[in-house]
Computed example of a mutant assay.
Amino acid sequence: MAQLGCYVPARRCHMTTFDRIFTRIGANDNIMAGQSTFMVELSETSKIMREATPRSLVILDELGRGTSTYDGFAIAYSVLHHLATKVRCLALFSTHYASLSTEFEANPLFALMHMGFFHDEEKREVTFLYKLTKGSCPKSYGMNVASLAGVPQEIVDRAEIVAGNFEKSHHNRTVVVNKR
């Protein structure tokens, strides 16, 4: 039997043995085969849904980002719901869909976590701490990341206005999900 290991920067680590580890991380396409980034993402997710067992570890990053907000949310919700209620495996599922966190916050099968940060309102700066923290993230800091990446401030300022207007126009809408 082959063994797989890696360094764990901790004093102790107790892990369950998994039959398989599935990951769906990153964005790439296969244009030569006629597959968009979204098609590749869903093909990989489809394989995971068919092959994962209760003894599997599934890691999914930003599922649904390659399509409209509503379709992406619906796909992410449905995959997460299926993993929790049908497959019942251990899963790490990262998302920017804040409403997805709200949908599952009362479910005892879920533990909401986010990467910690320090936000200086006065300077309009955010420092990402890269520390896993309990609870869902209170807001997105995409504009801060845009600034850190060197996007011209004029564009970031305009994007903040557009994001605020979009958030206001969609704030009163709720997502009704059949919890079967």
Rank of each mutant, 00 (worst) to 15 (best):
A149E: 13
S169C: 07
G26E: 10
Y7M: 06
Q153N: 11
F18P: 00
R50K: 11
S68Y: 11
D19E: 08
L112I: 02
N30E: 11
A27C: 02
M113A: 11
I155H: 12
H82N: 00
S56N: 11
E121H: 13
P9I: 10
D157R: 11
P54Q: 07
A33Q: 14
A76R: 00
S43Y: 09
P152H: 14
K134W: 01
R12W: 08
L80H: 00
R20W: 04
Q35A: 05
K168L: 10
T53R: 12
T16P: 00
G34T: 09
D157S: 09
A106C: 07
G72N: 06
F117K: 13
V8M: 12
F110I: 13
M113E: 12
Y7L: 09
A2F: 10
H171S: 08
F104A: 00
L83R: 01
M115W: 08
S46A: 15
H81I: 02
L109V: 03
Q3H: 11
V176S: 12
E44I: 07
K131M: 06
R55Q: 13
Q35P: 00
E103D: 06
V87E: 04
T53P: 01
A27W: 00
G164I: 06
I48A: 07
C6F: 13
K123E: 14
P152A: 10
K47E: 05
L148H: 14
T45E: 01
Y70G: 02
T53K: 12
E103T: 14
L63I: 15
M1G: 10
E41V: 01
D29N: 15
Y77H: 14
M115N: 07
G135K: 02
T102G: 01
T45H: 01
G116M: 05
R65S: 02
V126W: 07
E160S: 12
